[in-house]
Simulated assay, not measured.
Amino acid sequence: MAIKGSCHCGRCTCSLCSKRGALWAYYTPAQFRLTSPPENVATYLWGSRTVKHHFCAGCGCGTYSESPDWSTGKPDFDNPKVGVNARLFDDFDLDAVPVTVIDGKNLW
């Protein structure tokens, strides 16, 4: 099922607070398609520069990330993942899907 999302650009100011946090939904690169022009995407690399954190260059909303699979606690570069900020999904009920909380701060 295709899901469409958008950042804060072109929306009323009250939506900014609801879109600031990230709730990551993970996909394989083959399952992800960026429909925005690449020049609208800015990238932040932190620490080991292993994960590309992308955000909207216009409004600053964190949109998606590209990284190795970390499900074992170690980076698996042979199985990359795309984390999409599910809080940006339009017309989608986040309460209807299960959420697994991963303590990334203390896990690694």
Rank of each mutant, 00 (worst) to 15 (best):
N106P: 06
A42V: 01
D76F: 10
R87K: 09
V99Y: 05
T43I: 14
W46Q: 13
S6T: 13
R49S: 12
K105P: 02
W24I: 01
T72Q: 08
Q31A: 14
V51A: 02
N79A: 07
N79P: 05
A96G: 04
L23Q: 04
D78Y: 12
D90Q: 14
C14F: 15
I3N: 03
C7A: 06
G104M: 04
D91W: 09
T63S: 05
C9K: 14
P37F: 05
T100P: 00
F32V: 00
E39I: 03
P80Q: 11
G83H: 02
A30Q: 12
K74M: 13
K105V: 13
S71K: 13
R49T: 08
R33A: 14
W70N: 07
C59H: 07
H54P: 01
N85S: 04
I102P: 00
S67D: 13
T43S: 06
G62N: 10
G62L: 12
V101Y: 11
S15T: 14
V82Q: 02
S65C: 15
S15H: 11
S71W: 07
A57M: 10
W24C: 00
F32K: 00
P75F: 11
L23D: 06
K81P: 10
A96D: 09
V97L: 06
G60W: 11
K19C: 07
G47V: 08
V82Y: 03
V97M: 05
H54W: 06
D103I: 08
F92W: 10
A86Y: 01
D91G: 08
C61A: 15
F55A: 06
L34C: 03
G10M: 12
D91C: 09
Y26G: 01
R49G: 09
Y64R: 09
P75Q: 07
R49I: 09
C61T: 15
S65N: 14
T50N: 03
I102L: 07
G60L: 09
Y26D: 02
R11A: 08
V51W: 02
C59N: 08
W46N: 14
Y44L: 05
A57S: 15
R87C: 07
G10D: 13
L16C: 09
N106C: 13
F89K: 02
G58I: 11
A86G: 02
Y26N: 02
D90M: 12
K81A: 10
A2C: 05
V99E: 07
S48K: 10
R49N: 11
P80M: 12
C59G: 06
P98L: 12
V84W: 01
T35I: 04
G21I: 04
D95A: 10
H53E: 08
V51M: 01
V41E: 01
H53S: 06
A25V: 04
I102Y: 11
W24P: 01
N40Y: 11
D93R: 04
A96M: 07
C61F: 14
T100I: 13
G62R: 12
L94M: 05
G62P: 09
K105R: 15
L16S: 08
